[in-house]
Amino acid sequence: MKNIKTILLLAVVAISTAAFTFKTDSGYLVGDTIEDFSLKNINDTMISLADYKDAKGFIIIFTCNMCPYSVANEDRVIALDKKYKSKGFQVIAINPNDPKASAGDSFKDMKARAEEKGFNFPYLFDEGQKVYPKFGATKTPHVYIVTKNDMKVQYIGAIDNNSKNSDAVSEKYVENTVDYLLAGKKPTKTTTRAIGCSIKVL
């Protein structure tokens, strides 16, 4: 009997270790709890999600200066910030690229781009490229919507259904998800896909 118990215990340990390993490899899935981070913002201050005491949630967008798909979505990110900041969902942009692997994505370049476009939200530099693998982000742009009270991932994917042409959008994935969450409802579409630029690391 004791032996069986030991075997069962070992099995549980083995399975949970395997599950944990799997999660670190592929990053967060919808429903997972995320770890907070501390990254440098373009105004040289460090930003954590915990800093946003009154936020209901976050629209975390891995994006960069150089990817045409990121650039094509910049105005949409600005619009999301405008619409949802006052409602409690804060846009947090994170540049996951290693500037050594992507000319034009240095901290200085990020400051310049944010200034040029008038970003009214944090644009964080993932120094050492340590945060994006935890999320499992693979490309720019790549959006994660997280609720603050439980720090759970509610949505992973694209901003809307036409990444190349904002005039032809017929379904606004991020807006729909945040609207559902604000209304206390469960979002219906929790993962979507769009073409993007691979994250640049050496």
């Binding site: 490309k139 790549h142 694209a158 073409i195 993007g196 630029c197 691979s198």
Partner: peptide, 20 residues
């Protein structure tokens, strides 16, 4: 083809959409 959410996973379930 604008319907990326459809065809990316139709081409392969594992593809998140990154190039190359």
């Amino acid at each position: 083809d604008a319907n990326e959410d459809f065809w990316i996973q139709a081409i392969d379930e594992s593809w998140t959409g990154a190039l190359p």
